[in-house]
Design a protein around this nucleic acid. Structure first.
Length: 266
DNA sequence: AATGGGACCTGCGCGC
DNA sequence: TGCGCGCAGGTCCCAT
């Protein structure tokens, strides 16, 4: 579930809290989440290092360490980073020199932790499309040309544009008044411009509200993100559209729940 | 090339 | 009350 706004929120929270702190001990309670290298090497490479810098690329968090290595964290759907640890048994805990711990939780064990020499060499990172905020309108328009794919799965395609997932794709398309099944290359100039604008606006607003706390997403403090109060379409199937009162539909698109208003979105 | 499905997981809510 | 099932979605992988 954590998409760009949630991961960006965690990044900004972490930046304030853990930069400059030293990791004294790493406890791996569930080895499944450590994907690279071995658990032993993972611990060895982290213990004694301090955190120099926190970065975000797409939905991925990167903690750059004083020893030149990087801790790469993909939260997937249910991953959480909580500081200070709240006593619930985490999958992995990073004990810091101040006696507190940064806890990594992940109910469904989809998340991935990696300790790497060069995070940019990770295949997933290499395959990523541009960050939404790095794009210009012209570039974005060109990207949509010759794409016959349905627009919603395309927005969620990380090799096309990075950071947008199921929730924000629905919100962006509703506000752009574009039907999620429209072929990308069928969008008019005006629609492409609107889509570009709404993409930035929705993601920016969501960051301002500190993300959407549905399912497992919490901030590093354990607090919630408040963008759910601004949702107009996601999760509202059967309820009246906030603009025209038409009942909101839910369909399956690319295996994902897709919410839209059949009157507002054409 | 694009699309569809299954796999990975677990907890929750639903129907019976 | 309890059980089994489907669903939730990020990403990879395979088949068509």
């Amino acid at each position: 579930m954590p998409e760009l706004p949630e991961v960006e929120t965690i990044k900004r929270d972490l930046e304030k809290i853990i930069v400059g702190k030293k990791i004294v001990e790493v406890c791996v309670h569930h080895p499944t989440v450590v994907r690279e290298p071995t658990v032993k090497e993972f611990k060895k490479g982290l213990e004694g290092a301090s955190i120099k810098n926190v970065l975000r690329r797409a939905k991925v968090l990167i903690l750059e360490l004083s020893n030149g290595k990087s801790l790469v964290i993909h939260l997937k759907m249910t991953g959480q980073l909580v500081y200070p640890g709240n006593g619930e048994k985490p999958r992995v805990s990073f004990n810091l020199s101040n006696g507190k711990s940064l806890d990594f939780n992940d109910q469904r064990l989809f998340a991935e932790l990696r300790l790497m020499d060069d995070w940019k060499s990770l295949k997933f990172i290499q395959g990523l499309g541009p960050e939404p905020f790095d794009l210009t309108l012209d570039k974005f328009k060109k990207m949509l040309e010759n794409k016959r794919t349905k627009i919603k799965p395309l927005l969620m395609d990380q090799s096309f544009i990075s950071g947008i997932g199921n929730l924000y794709a629905s919100e962006i398309l509703f506000r752009s008044k574009i039907h999620p099944e429209r072929p990308a290359n069928s969008l008019s100039d005006k629609e492409r411009e609107g889509l570009f604008k709404q993409t930035r606006e929705v993601l920016n607003d969501a960051i301002r509200y500190k993300g959407s706390s549905i399912d497992d997403y919490v901030r590093v403090s354990g607090g919630k993100g408040n963008y759910v109060s601004q949702h107009k379409i996601y999760g509202r199937q059967g309820l009246p559209c906030l603009v025209c009162r038409t009942l909101i539909k839910k369909i399956n698109l690319g295996g994902r729940g897709t919410y839209f208003c059949s009157k507002c979105q054409r």
